[in-house]
Nucleic acid binder design. Structure first.
Length: 466
RNA sequence: GGUCCCUUCGUCUAGCGGUCUAGGACACCGGCCUUUCACGUCGGUAACAUGGGUUCGAUUCCCAUAGGGAUCACCA
């Protein structure tokens, strides 16, 4: 066990999105690699916006991705006593003060400042206020440093310096007594012994004020590593406009968790020319040194490619179980039909997602084949009928309905009729699958089995032009 | 607007002063394979934002400019 302690601290105001998942992944990978501790903390201090459903969704997504944590989940909503005590401590030490300005007043002043070209920061009205009017609601503000500079060495971005003049006295406790993010994140990271904070770089601007807070509270300041944002194709922050952003939406779309993990890891991190990484590979090879500094564009095409790779190389039994779920979702009963693993085998190389695989598997379980009219018109012609009938009788006579047996049945027909497979197979494919695109007819025949195949082939006779 | 971050093919990236006529991957285009669709395979198009420095020598270091992103809440 090393001293490294990292955490993922999502706010339960929605599902786990792609960006959050990558942050969680990086934390997880580093913790595992360094044999450190990975902590999960739910940041639900905003009671109005936090929901149990969101928390559940986040937990579920973490589990689906295989990101297990060592401690937690901790809920900030259960730690208000701690925060109140820390606020009190700051108040007593004169490092924080009560502010009686109302939200409306502040808003008005902000606008005025902006209009006159000034900075929209708190003007310090209550900074030196001594009286404590009874019955008047107040917030607690942190007395921030007004001069000097605050700097830190980011593990990804390098040295970053802020002029303290840019910082204002931020609110650390609302008028309803609940604490605010920038305050609790400091208290919790310190109290939980976090040694390295890995988070999105949208938090860079929060870092200096948090450092000041660590110091005011007498805590050691942890290290920081700010990972770049993930952008949409138009280079703006990834959002719903760009398609699915929820991790679990990808499961529904037929993606495998290892594909998403692999993709997310490679978005912003690299290891030479390698592209394919299992979770074990990532744990072995991940380092913050190879995380890039610039924001990356989410590329669904590449995710698709990785997913196709994992489907191609995946375990059939597992894929069969996953495929069944997608088939059932389409209202298809897989009980009266070919073995699912055999079906997976024929579709593995031609499906990029489980949804595509399910689409491609539908014909196997159809009670009746409804053939594409265009395909029928093109291949089920009077001219093709003799060959088709020859195949039908050869397959009827076949007593070894395996790939090899089927192949030799076709070979027999080909030598007897002089027709090439290109003349024989298409019509068979159409009556068997209803379409011109499918796995190899030998495979389809074998997978369907003799009984079902012959039934379809006989029914198919009706499709031929007279 | 202020502040902060970022800047190699369309996209993800390799590159950590000379090995760069810049490598890999996705996508795209073409050949091959082939019973369809795919897979596979071979090949191709395609990038160091711009301008100054530093240096014997810059894709690599520094500074500007431009562009992009983030952030400026009693959200996190």
């Amino acid at each position: 066990m090393s001293q490294l302690r990292v955490r993922f601290a999502p706010s339960p105001t929605g599902y786990l999105h792609i960006g959050g998942a990558r942050t969680a992944l990086f934390n997880y990978l580093l913790a595992r690699k360094e044999k450190g501790t990975f902590i999960l903390r739910i940041e639900d201090t905003d009671v109005a916006r936090s929901t149990q459903e969101s928390t559940d969704a986040i937990l579920q997504a973490m589990e689906w991705l295989g990101l297990s944590y060592d401690e937690g989940p901790f809920y900030q909503s259960e730690r208000f006593d701690l925060y109140r005590a820390k606020v009190q401590q700051l108040l007593e030490q004169g490092k924080a003060y009560r502010c009686y300005c109302t939200a409306e007043e502040l808003e008005a002043r902000r606008e005025a400042a902006l209009k006159s070209g000034g900075k929209p920061k708190y003007d310090g009205t209550c900074r030196e206020r001594r009286d404590q009017p009874a019955g008047v609601p107040f917030v607690v503000r942190f007395r921030s440093a007004q001069e000097g500079e605050t700097c830190f060495h980011d593990r990804i971005k390098g040295p970053i310096v802020f002029n303290n003049e840019e910082l204002d006295d931020l609110i650390i406790q609302r008028s309803d007594g609940t604490p605010i993010y920038n305050f609790v994140v400091v208290v919790d990271d310190a109290e939980m012994g976090i040694t390295l904070v890995i988070r999105g770089d949208d938090h860079i601007n929060n870092t200096p004020r948090q450092i000041l807070l660590y110091q005011a509270l007498g805590y050691a300041v942890p290290e920081f590593a700010h990972v770049p944002m993930i952008l949409g194709a138009d280079k703006t922050r990834l959002s719903k406009r760009h398609g699915a952003t929820s991790v679990m939406a990808y499961e529904e779309l037929g993606f495998l968790p290892e594909a998403l993990v692999n993709y997310l890891a490679r978005l912003g991190w690299s290891c030479g020319d390698e592209e394919i990484f299992s979770m074990a590979d990532l744990i072995e090879k991940f380092t913050l040194d190879n995380v890039g500094k610039s924001a990356g564009v989410f590329n669904p095409e590449k995710l698709l490619w990785l997913n196709a790779h994992y489907i191609k190389t995946g375990d059939r039994q597992r894929l069969a179980a996953l495929l069944q779920r997608h088939l059932v979702a389409k209202g298809i009963d897989t009980n009266n039909g070919p073995n699912l693993e055999a079906v997976v085998k024929t579709l593995q190389e031609r499906a990029r997602t489980l949804v595509e695989m399910a689409d491609g598997a539908v014909f196997y379980y159809a009670k009746e084949i409804i053939a594409d009219p265009e395909a029928v018109a093109k291949w089920c012609t009077a001219e093709a009928r003799p060959g088709y009938e020859a195949v039908l009788s050869a397959l009827t006579a076949c007593n070894d309905f395996t790939h090899a047996g089927i192949e030799s049945a076709f070979a027999g027909v080909m030598s007897a009729t002089g027709l090439k497979l290109g003349k024989l197979a298409p019509a068979v494919r159409v009556t068997l699958t209803g379409s011109t695109a499918s796995p190899s007819v030998y495979e389809v025949l074998e997978t369907l089995g003799q009984e079902r195949s012959l039934e379809r082939l006989r029914n198919g006779l009706k499709l031929f032009a007279a």
